[in-house]
């Protein structure tokens, strides 16, 4: 156990304490009752959805995944299924799991604070909000054939044909990827030398790869929306 952890536990022993009964248990009890009441009242007034009997011959259009997966379905517009449906969620899960091991900043443990951990909080909040923004777009702004509609627009099948998509030639794609990841890894190492040194070589690389991958999703979305780019890199096996 690290010294810091020991200090934390020693410190815990010193903090002012109150009896769980009734101070904590009473609050838990009230919270549980409130949630039960809210759930039951809401359920009484708002029915759970139930559509027609499942019919393999008649696809829903649009067919939507449950809302919490709509962020992934939404990036299916910008990436092939193996990236949107498998690689991105896997990286998110792994990325979340490694957070405690790459964030070596001991400050802000056990209380809300922003200034002492600006980078961590900003990146996490960005990812959290990004995920929910995609869900909101997927839930409220996607109609038949996953075409875009504003929430106040009526869905119709008669939307303008999307402009044709172009892919970058491979030499340019490889070049762009090298620039993005190369500079992305090197520039912060130089510009924020103290930060990089604090992290150490391995942690720095993991942190920055995860960060660049997350921002990469945003970059690809931007490239598509602004320049109609389909793929950055095409190979016989997969496209990015």
């Amino acid at each position: 156990m690290s010294n810091h952890a020991k200090a934390q536990i020693a410190n815990y022993k010193k903090t002012k304490k109150v009896f769980s009964w009734p101070n904590l248990v009473a609050k838990e009890f009230i919270a549980a009752i409130l949630v039960t009441v809210v759930l039951l009242v809401y359920s009484y007034y708002v029915d759970a959805p139930l559509r027609e009997l499942a019919n393999p011959g008649e696809p829903e259009n649009p067919a939507k995944a449950p809302w919490y997966f709509l962020g992934l379905q939404e990036i299916l517009v910008y990436f092939d299924p193996w990236i949107a449906g498998v690689v991105v969620p896997s990286i998110i899960i792994i990325g979340l799991m490694v957070i405690p091991y790459i964030d070596v900043n001991p400050k802000g443990n056990g209380g809300y604070c922003f200034w002492d951990r600006r980078f961590a909080v900003t990146v996490f909040l960005f990812g959290f909000i990004f995920w929910y923004l995609l869900i909101i777009v997927g839930t409220y702004m996607r109609g038949p054939f996953w075409a875009f509609f504003w929430p106040w627009e009526a869905w119709s099948f008669d939307f303008p044909t999307p402009p044709p998509l172009i892919s970058l030639p491979n030499w340019l794609g490889i070049f762009a990827l090298l620039i993005y990841f190369g500079f992305g890894m090197l520039v912060p190492a130089v510009a924020f030398w103290k930060f990089a040194k604090q992290l150490g070589f391995i942690r720095y690389n993991i942190t920055m790869s995860l960060f660049l991958l997350m921002m990469g999703v945003l970059v690809k979305i931007a490239l598509r929306l602004m320049f109609n780019i389909k793929y950055i890199l095409q190979t016989p096996w997969f496209n990015i």
């Binding site: 156990m1 690290s2 952890a5 934390q8 405690p100 900043n105 056990g110 209380g111």
Partner: peptide, 8 residues
């Protein structure tokens, strides 16, 4: 936000 994932 409370940094509660930090050591230990």
């Amino acid at each position: 936000l409370t940094g509660s994932y930090k050591a230990p």
